[in-house]
Design a protein around this nucleic acid. Structure first.
Lengths: 362, 362
DNA sequence: ATGCAAGTTGAATCAATCA
DNA sequence: GTGATTGATTCAACTTGCA
């Protein structure tokens, strides 16, 4: 690879531009391709406001066949320009990630992990039709089964409070000051990724001084993380607007030494345990009776709600109802009726929490 | 489907046995197929016979091709036996889930969510060569894009402390007393799923009395959750050992009583009540004034329409008009003006519904 | 300055029924 | 099948505005 390509953004189509790069010339590829979301019409929130969905031209394809052809074309070039011991990261959602992963396996990439990015603040499902789509998936793969890929086990363990870094990462979406805006104050790119996500990727799977290629550079999050962590980047991006935004952004990034990196400490909050999880765990069966501190009894249902006469609701609401109080902490109010006498339900929460504590929030 | 298939385990190959089931005869399929982890050795052909050693001619692509052929074969039968409005759940890991998902999309299944099962207690990565593989992925898909699938949104929301359920589920792996053991005390099945996982799946996406087919029944976790929650199951399993273990397990399961199967209902399921019926019932007289949440007033007419100045229309249309909004739920927007203050009109709808429930339509 | 309330927003395959 | 009508539906994080 010609040396002058390093730390530059190339404006153009990623397949064409990758063809100009030499075989085996980059250490890592990070790719955030279009997801082919196939959104329907307009979507409104319960307050009637409009959801600004992804309607960009770059996300439109005729069908899966067209999307697959595109996917295989850019993956082919990406694999060619990777060094033999190189690796690739690809991010997607359920709309496209299965096609990405299958194509990668077909082409000889060797999957090392799939990583789940759990969003702390995802967009809710406004119509109540599905589960909140609260995560995206990253695939980490070596160029081949034989590749000696880079993995900084200890650095990642340090990032995770001395615990092995797991395959699920909990991070907020990109908002606030980090989100690039256009002159009118609107988001410059509809799907800008948080730098924290790329920070973890770059730190874990590249060495300082190595070259990272991002064929869908967008607003340059990969470049930002690379520059900050002393790696080189090559970005390819079709949109002149995005290129301009990324250029300005990268100019401001100051590289730091690893030891100066402030490691974000994971919050050790006590995990929230819904009462329903006690049911699912089999600790309390649907149909069991709970007795309140005032002696009133209510019956447990399969979804974790309580039935008291005609009324149904959460342990808190029914607790408030039978107390004729505006509010009630159901966890401390109710006990399970057993042959050996009443057992406070909070005991069961403690047990579930003990199990949950092994999967830290961050 | 012949009635005698319900709540039975069929010992045999799932593709052959599914061929004996009638078209459109099951409501839900839950499938936990082999993951094909490629840990060396055991390879299987589409007919599930064992490959004796590694055949060099087949190589890597041949492995995936064989797995894909097997996948498409059983998915084809699964789709055929599903009712038009049926749905499917499939669970896998990064080894196979991308191939599963892509095949499902190719066959016309419509993915609704991918769900991440976060394990609280995963197997650590002993060598420190990758991220701890701490999750598995489930794909939930409708039989087609047009299918009206079942989703008990409100019950799931209740299960999660009145917050809508997300696509990431944190649950422990199956251990302790729940884990089936053989006579020597070793685990009977290497990948037994926790019943809590199936509890959530069954509760969310089936109705009591429906039929759930599990073509890779194993030790019968799907059957256990189905029986406990008042659903029917059909299990298909090749191994006589697993069938015997599942039989013994299921015999011990006690179904939850009918009345405890009720879960939090959706408002969408309640019978529709036209506003005119409230007038007919004499609860609101023609000429009465309604006041909106924004203070605007409109007059009730004899046919259940509202008059606001020159404009007339339904409670929803006039509500939208006075809010200058594209849409409005008139039931929650308007209140009746009375001497004792405003009374939300939804209270009257509730009363009409109560009366209708007591005197069902003749 | 500070604190609280109200408003805004994010990769979204987001309704069901009747005329 | 198509279009109009009814009526159900949101969570966390950040920004703005006002006391």
């Amino acid at each position: 690879m010609a040396r002058h390509f390093k730390d530059r953004i190339i404006e153009g189509d990623c397949i064409e531009e990758m063809r100009k790069l030499a075989d085996g010339s980059v250490d890592l590829v990070f790719a955030d391709p279009p997801y082919f979301m196939q959104l329907g019409g307009a979507l409104t929130r319960p307050d009637q406001s409009n959801v600004d969905g992804v309607d960009d031209e770059w996300d439109k394809f005729a069908d899966f066949a067209a999307y697959d052809a595109f996917t295989r074309a850019w993956l082919t070039e990406a694999r060619r320009v990777l060094k033999p011991n190189g690796a690739i990261w690809v991010i997607g959602s359920y709309h496209n990630v299965f096609r990405l992963g299958a194509a990668m396996q077909d082409m000889g990439f060797w999957i090392l992990n799939d990583i789940v990015w759990r969003k702390t603040n995802p967009m809710p499902n406004f119509k109540g039709t599905r589960f909140t789509n609260a995560h995206e998936t990253l695939i980490w793969a070596a160029r081949s089964k034989e590749a000696k890929y880079t993995f900084h086990y200890d650095a990642l363990k340090m990032l995770n409070d001395e615990l092995q870094m797991r395959s699920d990462w909990t991070l907020p979406i990109c908002t606030g000051g980090e989100r690039l805006k256009d002159r009118e104050g609107r988001k410059l790119h509809s799907t800008q990724k948080p730098e924290a996500l790329l920070h973890r990727v770059v730190l874990a799977t590249t060495k300082p001084g190595e070259v990272i290629l991002d064929p869908f550079f967008g607003t340059g999050t990969t470049g930002a993380a690379a520059k900050r962590l002393g790696r080189h980047y090559i970005g390819i991006e079709r949109s002149a607007d995005y290129v301009a935004g990324a250029q300005a952004r990268l100019k401001k990034i100051k590289p730091v030494s690893i030891e100066d990196l402030a490691v974000t400490k994971s919050k050790k909050e006590e995990p929230r345990v819904p009462f329903g999880q006690v049911i699912e765990a089999g600790m309390i069966a649907p149909g069991a009776w709970l007795v309140g501190q005032n002696g009133k009894r209510a019956r447990v249902r399969a979804d974790g709600s309580l039935a008291f006469g005609e009324a149904t609701g959460s342990i808190h609401r029914i607790g408030a109802l039978v107390c004729d109080a505006p509010a009630c902490n159901g966890w401390t109010f109710w006990s399970l009726e057993t042959k050996r006498g009443p057992q406070p339900i909070d005991l069961f929460r403690r047990e579930v929490r003990r199990q949950m504590a092994m999967a830290p929030a961050a």
